[in-house]
Structure formats: structure tokens, C-alpha cells
Write a protein that binds this DNA or RNA. Structure first.
Lengths: 136, 136
DNA sequence: AATCATACTAGTAATGATTACTAATTTCGA
DNA sequence: TCGAAATTAGTAATCATTACTAGTATGATT
């Protein structure tokens, strides 16, 4: 792996991400880091997020809505995606670690891991809908 | 839901997809249906694939590589994605239906379902790699 | 069979997330 | 301090997908 040199921008990106639990997109990271570094470019944000993910310092989340999100932790856990507002929420599930093993038994390739996320309506959106019905 | 009218193009798309088990992309569908309808446009292919998926006649697969794939069956099953060649293969797994229930217990929103796919190296790529080592 | 509203098509332009390129700047070991 | 190599800002390019638009096909009603 190529040698990494320090950069203030990369540090700022990492520090910002560490303050968030809502899995921001590259664009949101960009808008926020710009408060400290007004000249930072979106390309720099993308490159560093990708770099950090490759180093295993953060993780990239793909939930198939066309926009990647980033998570300051690499500890394995699952996500919930609200199909209304698009928000991504951490889940705490256990007993799903042996899935890969289970699948391996009748599969001739080699399985490295799996991607799983749940979808539905988050509490906020459910409450909102109830409120609107109430007012009509 | 809006009323659907018959179209030869849509029928051809559906029929082509039915012959495939390798989850082709929209572009591959396009290239093949073009043999029968040389003037069909890529937009038409996309629109009809989306339409058919909305109707529940086919399903759209998102494995986060930036390109959607399509599956002629809507029966729930899991997929394996080869991280080398990108091929998508059907899996036969059971005992994973109660996952959503399990997660629901300590989650305040409502869960409709989940997306799961496995990744690793397919048999072809493993064999290929072994062969190259052998020849060097 | 002719009419007509409406869905559908081909072709093309637009969108939006991400990556690639390039000249100038920063980092850091020698 | 010097210099090789990584990094950056700014911009252009890419690529999958969607949107638009004028013309065509479908199918129910006469």
C-alpha cells in the first residue's frame, strides 16, 4: 500500500465524520468541512473518504439509493434505511454472524462476507403521517 | 396504478429476460433486444424494466457496483456477487426469514424487509487464479 | 372500419454522483 | 534547506439513469 502523508484536509474530514452518527454523504461532509477550509474541493473530500475507507479507518455504506454514505466506525453492524426520508439508522442485531458459513456449505466459490440492510419507515415518518391524518 | 397498454418492445424485453439466469444489466438487455427491434432505444428499455419491476413481474437487483441488474423471477432468494468479475449468482439459503422479526423487537420504526447479498470470489475466478499461478 | 383519448416509442438532452486530470502546493526524510 | 513524492483546488470527463418531446401504436367506443 502506498505511503500516506499527513494532510490537514484529511484530518478535518475524519474529525468531522467522527462527530456524526447519521452517516452523512460526501456532499454533506464537503459542506461542513468547508466551514473550516473554504477552499477545499469536493474531489478532495471524495478522494480522502475513499482513502480512509481503504485504510479501514471509516466505512462506506451503499444502500442502493445512488448516493454513498460514510460511517466513522468500522465495527460490523447493520443499518436501517427509511424509504420515506432516506435516513440511515444504526441497528443492534446479533445471531447473524454464521450466515456466511451457512451459505458456504452448498456453494462452490469462496464467500468473504455479506451486505445486509433493512428498510421500512422510521419513527419520525410514521409520527409525521399520523399527525397529517389527524389534521385533515 | 396507471392503466397499462400492450407494447411489443415491453414483451420482447420480458421474454429476453426470461431466458437468462445471469441477471443482466439494462445495457445487456438493450443490446440483445436490439437484434429483434433494431430501433429500440435504451430509454425504452429502462422505462419498461422499471415498469415491470413496479408491477412485480421482474425484480431489480442493486449490489452497489453502480449498475442495476434485473432478474426474471420475483421469488425471494439471495445473490452472490463476485468481487473479481462482477458476476451475480443465485443462492439457495433458508432459515433467514425471521431476521426482520428479530430486528423489530428493539426498533421503534416499522420494518418492511431487508436487502442481503454475499460477496467473494466465484469458482471461475478461483480456478483462473490457480491456473495463472501454475503457468508462471 | 373510423374516431379518439391515452399510453408508448425513438431520439436526444439533462441530471447527478463520482472519478480523472493537471499544474501548483505541502509534507517530510535526507 | 532540498527534493522526491504525496496532496490539493479546480475543472473536465464519465457513466448510469431519468426527463423531455414530437410522433406512433393501442384499444375501447362508436
Amino acid at each position: 500500500m502506498k505511503e500516506l502523508k499527513y494532510s490537514r484536509q484529511r484530518e478535518a474530514i475524519k474529525e468531522f465524520l467522527a462527530t456524526r452518527t447519521d452517516h452523512p454523504t460526501a456532499d454533506i461532509v464537503y459542506m461542513n468541512v468547508r466551514k473550516e477550509y473554504p477552499n477545499i474541493s469536493l474531489g478532495t473530500v471524495y478522494r480522502n473518504l475513499t482513502l480512509l475507507a481503504d485504510q479501514g479507518e471509516i466505512s462506506r455504506i451503499r444502500v442502493g439509493d445512488g448516493t454513498d454514505r460514510f460511517d466513522p466506525t468500522t465495527k460490523e453492524h447493520f443499518h436501517f434505511v427509511c424509504k420515506n426520508c432516506g435516513s440511515v439508522i444504526d441497528l443492534d442485531v446479533d445471531g447473524m454472524d454464521d450466515m456466511a458459513q451457512q451459505v458456504s456449505r452448498n456453494f462452490s466459490g469462496s464467500i468473504d462476507g455479506h451486505v445486509t440492510y433493512f428498510f421500512g419507515s422510521c419513527k419520525n415518518c410514521i409520527d409525521m403521517e399520523a399527525l397529517q391524518k389527524c389534521n385533515s
